[in-house]
Amino acid sequence: MLEVKDLTVEFNGLTAVDDVSFSVEEGQWLMVAGPNGSGKTTIINAVSKSVHYSGTVKLLGKDVRKYKPYELARAMGVLKQNHAVNYPFTVEEVVRLGRYAYAPGPFSHKSGEDDIRVYEAMNMTGLDHIREQSVMTLSGGELQRTFLAQLFAQSPNLLMLDEPTSHLDLVYQKQTFELIREWLKAPGRAVISVVHDLSLIKAYGTRAMLLSRGKVKAEGEIGEVLTARHLDPVYSMDVYAWMRELSASWQ
């Protein structure tokens, strides 16, 4: 579904992403892992055309540079970790924006399908009861679910999530990952997400890519990538020992 070749991103002479290639197939959930500053978020930004890059990114067999903005939005959706909305839009208004790609430009009108998709997305994410509420009054978890609902309404083929739950509490974290796993079950879909928590990666991912200083250190099945051989040099510590120590404190 997604094919990335020789992706390189430079900021002011600094190479943030260095010659990275990978691909994602239908039904896969690719977890992008690595320490801070390893280029995880930059990859998401490059693939979604938010920063300049060199190399090629092909989505559904077509170069993303050749997509019109609304065509790209139908094929690819992005969820960021931070949302600060300055105006009191209602939850429903924000979710409804997800349908923009299906009626772009000033002269197109919404269809009955838009209403159904918006309703489904709010229902799925449990936002029905607060759909009239201002997004400025929501908790961080509710706000993140609102934007997740917007993505579900947008209904792209590829979902890209940039640390979707990094400052959510455990309940929301679990809810969000379960929702995305459900979403992925339909045909023609795939997910890429940047996640720090290695346990979440093990629990939900189907594949993983480990980055260090902009370069790919390992890529493949979760079990092959998250081994001591790959993890320890990247994080400069005995990762397995630390994880065991953490879980032992729960015994």
Binding site: P69, Y70, V78, L97, Y100
Partner: peptide, 24 residues
């Protein structure tokens, strides 16, 4: 006035506007 929907998207966030398909 014809760009009201696009302005809604911008008011929520410029990045968000780009990701939902607005020709920013």
């Amino acid at each position: 006035i014809l760009h009201a929907r696009e302005l809604n998207a911008f008011a929520v966030g410029e990045d968000n506007a780009r990701h939902i398909g607005v020709n920013v």
